[in-house]
Computed example of a mutant assay.
Amino acid sequence: MNYYFIIYKPYLVLSQFSSQDGKQSLKDFFDVPKDVYPVGRLDYDSEGLLLLTNDTALNHRLLHPSFAHEREYLVQVDGAITEQALQQLRSGVIISIDGREHRTLPARATLLQPSPEVPERNPPIRFRKDIPAPWISLVLTEGKNRQVRRMTAAAGYPTLRLIRYRIEALELGALQPGGIVSLPRKTVYKKLFHE
């Protein structure tokens, strides 16, 4: 039997069920059947939407580079991001992956005003009265290691907080950190692959 769950991975939690170096992992928050694993990953210091399943065909279709799919991130950046910086993110920036230069694919980058309603983070980001920390939406179709953080840094605005909100039409919605929702296969395939 195939299972499908969407979860809100909390901040400072590994995207795996085994713990490592004393860090919290998914098993500290989610009780799912033994053969269910995350599709892809979110960095330890990122949070948000992860799909858990034991459907290996789905895993292949989401992770293989030949199947491009949209992922939307809510990104809080350090400093009053300019239209010029957003344009850089849209047209692609040069980032370093394993010591090699990579030009990112065109992305959609939008300043979010007002700021999105997001759960409190524990611990919160460092607040500095004199430096704005606006939110942007960044929609990518590729997933290089720490790509969002590398992109905003390359545009001159380091990432302070990073939440994956959406994969294609599969969204976090009102889920809170540590939240989990079970979905039927039909819903997952319709939202991810428009089937």
Rank of each mutant, 00 (worst) to 15 (best):
W135G: 08
G178H: 10
Y73T: 01
Y11Q: 14
L62I: 02
V75T: 05
L183A: 05
P119R: 07
T187L: 03
F5V: 00
S18T: 15
P33V: 13
G179N: 05
L50A: 07
D21M: 13
G173V: 06
Q84G: 12
P119A: 06
D28P: 07
D35F: 15
Q147P: 03
L74C: 13
T152C: 00
R149F: 01
V118F: 05
R103D: 07
I97Q: 05
A57H: 12
V139P: 04
S46Y: 02
R128E: 13
G92V: 02
A107N: 01
D43S: 10
P132Y: 11
S46F: 00
K191P: 01
R121V: 00
D45N: 14
R90D: 09
Q76F: 09
P124Q: 08
H60Y: 12
P132S: 06
V188L: 05
R185F: 14
E171G: 14
N122T: 15
G40S: 08
R90Y: 04
D78Y: 03
D28W: 05
A155E: 08
F29G: 05
A68D: 07
F29Y: 13
L105K: 07
I94F: 15
D98K: 14
V148W: 06
T187I: 14
F5N: 02
D43Y: 09
L140Y: 05
R166A: 12
R121C: 09
P106E: 01
E83V: 11
R103F: 02
L42Y: 03
R100Y: 12
V181D: 13
G99S: 04
I167T: 10
S19R: 11
L58N: 01
Q88L: 12
